[in-house]
Computed example of a mutant assay.
Amino acid sequence: MIVTENGIATADDQQRIDYTTGALEGLAAVLRDGLDVRGYLHWTLMDNFEWVHGYEKTFGLIAVDRSTFARTPKLSAY
């Protein structure tokens, strides 16, 4: 199994931390049960453009300033 595009669209980074922690705890549980997990991909590394919502929804572990393009890791990145 490979878990792909797992994440949450929220401006609340604590909610992202809680969601991701729960997902990784679930992944650890299935590993203990013997499932063959080959990978986990968080969606997404950086805040990005979503076709339906533009830049309104944020998924990224790294915030992107749209005026300077500066990238700043969020607490959820750690």
Rank of each mutant, 00 (worst) to 15 (best):
M1K: 04
M1F: 05
M1W: 05
I2A: 05
I2S: 03
I2L: 06
V3N: 03
V3C: 07
V3G: 05
T4I: 03
T4D: 02
E5C: 09
N6W: 00
N6C: 07
G7N: 00
G7D: 01
I8Y: 01
I8W: 00
A9P: 02
T10Y: 02
T10L: 00
T10W: 02
A11P: 05
D12K: 08
D13G: 09
D13H: 05
D13M: 05
Q14F: 06
Q14W: 05
Q14C: 04
Q15H: 09
Q15A: 11
I17N: 00
I17C: 02
D18S: 09
D18M: 06
Y19Q: 07
Y19W: 11
A23F: 06
A23N: 03
L24S: 02
L24W: 01
L24T: 02
G26W: 05
G26H: 08
G26S: 10
L27T: 03
L27P: 02
L27R: 01
A28R: 09
A28H: 05
A29Q: 07
V30D: 02
V30L: 09
R32T: 08
R32H: 10
D33E: 10
G34Y: 09
L35M: 12
D36C: 13
D36L: 14
R38K: 15
G39Q: 11
G39H: 11
Y40H: 09
Y40L: 12
Y40A: 12
Y40K: 11
Y40T: 04
L41D: 03
L41W: 01
L41S: 10
L41T: 10
H42A: 14
H42Q: 08
W43I: 07
W43P: 07
W43Y: 06
T44G: 11
L45T: 00
M46N: 12
D47C: 11
F49P: 07
E50F: 15
E50H: 14
E50S: 14
E50V: 14
V52D: 08
H53R: 13
H53I: 08
G54W: 08
Y55R: 13
Y55V: 10
E56G: 15
E56I: 11
K57C: 12
K57M: 13
T58R: 15
F59L: 08
G60I: 00
L61A: 03
I62D: 02
V64N: 13
R66I: 14
R66G: 15
S67D: 11
T68H: 14
F69E: 10
F69H: 15
A70F: 08
A70E: 13
R71K: 15
R71D: 10
P73S: 12
K74V: 00
K74M: 01
L75D: 10
L75W: 02
A77C: 03
Y78M: 06
